[in-house]
Structures are given as C-alpha cells and as structure tokens.
Design a binder for these strands. Structure first.
Lengths: 200, 200
DNA sequence: CGCCTTAACTTTACAATGTAAAGCAAGTCG
DNA sequence: CGACTTGCTTTACATTGTAAAGTTAAGGCG
C-alpha cells in the first residue's frame, strides 16, 4: 500500500529512483539496500525488484540518470566560458561540482561492480560524457583524440587529473586542499587542472 | 576444525588475511563476505569475527597491510632511479603497478566506507605513504608542501594525476591507453605523470 | 453496465549473510 | 594433576535479495 493510501502509486518507478539516490547517499554503495529503498517509498519490500528486476537493475538505472545529470552540470559550467581552454577547465570544475555534490552516486557511476554495463541506456549516457571530453580536446589542441597521438595523451591527462581530484576530494584529501573555501579553492583547482591541459 | 585437522590453526589470523584478499579480489568489496573468507580458510563461519571483531575489522587490517605493501612497491620502483624527478615519476609508476595488480584491495584502501580510520595501524600505514609523497615534492621542488604554497599545489597535482590514472585504468579506461602494452604504455604514462610535476 | 485481461503491486517463502552468545577443545601455568 | 585462558565452533537470530504466487485496480470490449 502506498503511503498515501493508493494501491497504484502513479509513478512508482520515478519515486523509487528518487528514494534510491537518498538511500545511496546516506548509506553508501556498500550498505545500499533494496528493502531500505522500498521503506522510504512506503511500498512493499519487493516493489523495487518488480520495476527494476534486481539490485543491479535499479543501480544501473540510477547511474544512467546520473550520467545525464553529470553531463548537464558540466555543460552548465562550460556555458559561462567562451575560450576553448576556459571551457575545458570549466568542464573539469563541473566534474568536481557533481562529484562533491553527489559523492556516492559518483562512485557508483565510476567505480562500482554492481552496474550492468551491457545496459544500452547506461552505455549511451556514459558515452555522451566521454564524447564531450573528446570535443574539448579537439577544441583545445586542434586535433581529434582518435586520430592524433598527442591529443590522445591530452585526453588521458585531463581525464585522469580531474577524476583523481574528484576521488581524492570525496575522501576529504588532501586536507590542505579541502581547507580552502570558495574562490580560493576554485583558483587552486583551475591551476591544477591547467597543468594537465595542452600548454596555452 | 581447520582443514588440516588441527583445532588450533597455528596462525589463523594471517591465513584469514590471505584468504580475505583472495575473496576481495575475486568478488569485489561490495560482494565480500566473511563467511566466504571462513570457507576458504576451512574454518567455521564465525572464526573471522573472533579474530577481527567484525567485517570492518578484517577489512581494516587488510587495508593497513595493503598500505605497507603499497609503499614497498613504490620504493622498489624509486630505487631504480637517481634523479629526484625520475624518482618521483617512478613512485607514480609504482602506484599504478600496485593498483593494477590488486585493484580491489586498492579500491578498498582509497574508496571504501567500510574501513575504520580510527584504527592506529591503518592511519600510520596510510600516513607513511603520504609522507613519501611529501618527500618527493620536497626533493623535486626544493620546498616542503606544508610550508610552501606552490609545493602544496605540486603535491595535489601529482597525487590527483596518478590516482586518477589508477582509478581509470582499473576500470579499463580509456581504451586507447589500455590498448598500449609494456614499454609503450610506460612511456605514455611517464609523459602524462610528468605534466603534473614541477617543470623540469 | 458487467466481464475479462493485464499491469501494478503485495504476500509468502527461502537461502545467504553478519554478528552475538554460549559451548567446547587444547595449550599453559600453578 | 587441575584451574585458567585462549582459540575456535555451535547455535541462534535479525536483515537482506530474490523467486513465486496471490491480490488489487484499471481499461477494453461485449
């Protein structure tokens, strides 16, 4: 029985995704529980499995949605810049915005063994993010990563640097970086990300 | 009863740590099971809890041991180089060696919510690794990260770059990098890591 | 309107897991 | 030789994922 008394929820699928994200951020991937999600949504413990098959199905759907939002955050940051290099750095800052705002979801997306990468929706969402990275390399270096060796290295360096920053910052490391606030931190991050990009 | 028939195992603690690592690498952190570890060691399902308190205790002990080995791998790589910059890059390559050789253990050490960071052994082992990073920055830049602002950025940049490479490569990404073999890959990695270090 | 079909959930059931508590075996020290 | 202690086992129970069967409501068709 739905919490509002109705038997048919209306849009339980969307509600479960919402509650699943709350469960994920609160408990972490490792303590994530389907029954916990059901409890939050006020439905029977088996309702999530009905909609998503199993835990992997729910997490996969959540991750796919996450990649779409991730891309949107990056693009929003980029829209504030006009020069290719500034836009590339902005994409990196968006990457960090998202990771710090949704750490558990971020780790689910990038470092979980519980995702079903054969799922077309998840693959497509992930590739869209990767494509943006390629486009930024092309705009900055003037060569496409899948054709030019140097551009390929640019792509790896930029991705690794930003991804590493995200992972470390999620873990609160290094303390010296996490101690910086607002503009100071952003200025430091711009400088660090800049090291990985093609020279100006 | 121990698999060899003895009641007292002799060194069950060490055996459990060994089997726990096998369990971890085979099933991943998210599907890691105490009972699975016990089964591998041929002891009763509650034996691990007897030695380590609970799952967190076992994983924490495993991670602490992991940090010690991690440090050893980095130092082994560094021993082959004499110049500060070469040694710094070698430490990064050792970081990647370890991550790729023990991906699940690596992720346990750096990205698990199941570790008890109040444990002194774990803290000490982790700090020893961090100290090596600081020493490498000092040797390369000529300034200590806890005193000099630029050195602090050096530390963050180097760590983030190498850590990001580790996380991405564990996930098999990017495909272009993972397709490279042996010397080719190492040369590419040297170049990429070099971007994050103080200019030559 | 009443019946039938089907989709959306619930209930029931079961095996696997973590952990607490009590029990038993075997070395150790008096 | 007997009590103590340590190391492991047994038993027990709550929580979890998932399968399967049951129940409720919504919609189409006569």
């Amino acid at each position: 029985m739905a919490s509002d008394g109705r038997y048919h929820h209306g849009d339980l699928r969307a509600a479960l995704l919402r509650e699943a994200e709350a469960e994920l951020e609160e408990k972490g991937v490792e303590a994530f529980s389907l029954r916990g999600v059901a409890k939050r949504a006020g439905v029977s413990h088996a309702a999530p499995a009905h909609h998503f098959g199993d835990t992997a199905g729910l997490l996969t759907a959540l991750a796919a949605e996450g990649f779409a939002r991730f891309l949107a955050v990056k693009e929003a940051r980029m829209a504030q810049e006009s020069e290719p290099r500034g836009r590339f750095i902005a994409a990196g800052l968006g990457y960090l915005d998202f990771a710090l705002a949704h750490p558990a979801l971020f780790r689910l997306m990038f470092a979980s063994a519980r995702l079903d990468w054969t799922d077309p929706a998840l693959c497509a969402a992930g590739e869209a993010v990767f494509d943006l990275l390629g486009a930024n390399v092309l705009a900055t270096r003037g060569a496409a990563p899948d054709e030019d060796e140097t551009a390929r290295l640019d792509l790896v360096a930029a991705w690794a640097m930003v991804h590493g920053l995200a992972e470390l910052m999620i873990a609160g490391r290094p303390a010296a970086l996490m101690a910086l606030r607002g503009d100071e931190r952003e200025a430091a991050l711009r400088g660090i990300i800049g090291r990985a990009l093609p020279p100006q």
